[in-house]
């Protein structure tokens, strides 16, 4: 399934890296976009000034958040200013990648074509070990290479420990996924 996810990698990566609002579909002739919503992947733009360092880090298999260099407060998602002190001096510290499920759902059809072959599939919101205010969305897997629907959604629970795993979707985009951890993991 990983191979199907990475099919079209070259086109996807090139377009994603240019950051243009074009549609990614390996099957489409160059320059011809499929109708809106019909793309094979839904990808984040990786070239936006305020968020590019996050995606650069995931490509390097590091999970980062933002930290205000004036008051020290960490934040996610990235913002140009610190809401606590309004400073725009910031850095991107790496976090442990340990987290707990804060909430979870199961997505049933109808969904976008990009996700149709997986539905129903679970999705999670996790709370990072570094703070209650640091939450990220994602999909859960039991082992690297799993598809996003491989886990029985009924087995998920709030507070369940997970750890980040990086899934390379295209040359430009590596998404964090959340690998289930044994009970009692940090």
């Amino acid at each position: 399934m990983l191979s199907s996810l990475t099919a079209g990698r070259e086109d996807g990566a090139r377009i994603a890296d240019r950051g243009e609002a074009m549609l990614v579909n390996a099957a489409a002739p160059s320059g011809v976009a499929p109708p809106m919503g019909q793309a094979e992947f839904i990808l984040p733009a990786t070239d936006k000034a305020d968020t590019a360092p996050f995606w650069q880090a995931t490509r390097e298999k590091r999970l980062v958040v933002q930290r205000c260099d004036s008051c020290g407060k960490t934040r996610f998602p990235p913002r140009p200013h610190c809401g606590a002190c309004r400073s725009d001096k910031l850095s991107w510290p790496e976090v442990s990648g340990f987290a707990k499920i804060f909430s979870h759902i199961v997505v049933y059809p109808p969904v976008l074509p990009a996700f149709a072959k997986y539905a129903p599939f679970p999705a999670v919101l996790v709370e990072l070990a570094e703070g209650k205010h640091l939450r990220m969305f994602g999909n859960v897997i039991a082992k690297p290479g799993d598809t996003i629907n491989a886990i029985n959604p009924d087995s998920l629970y709030i507070g369940q420990p997970v750890r980040v795993h990086f899934e390379v979707l295209t040359d430009g985009v590596t998404l964090p996924r959340w690998l289930l951890q044994p009970e009692g993991a940090r």
Binding site: F41, I42, P44, V111, A114, F121, A123, F137, G138, I148
Partner: peptide, 12 residues
Amino acid sequence: RQMWLRPHGVVR
């Protein structure tokens, strides 16, 4: 900011 949700299938 939907880039933190949509790629994970959190679309609707």
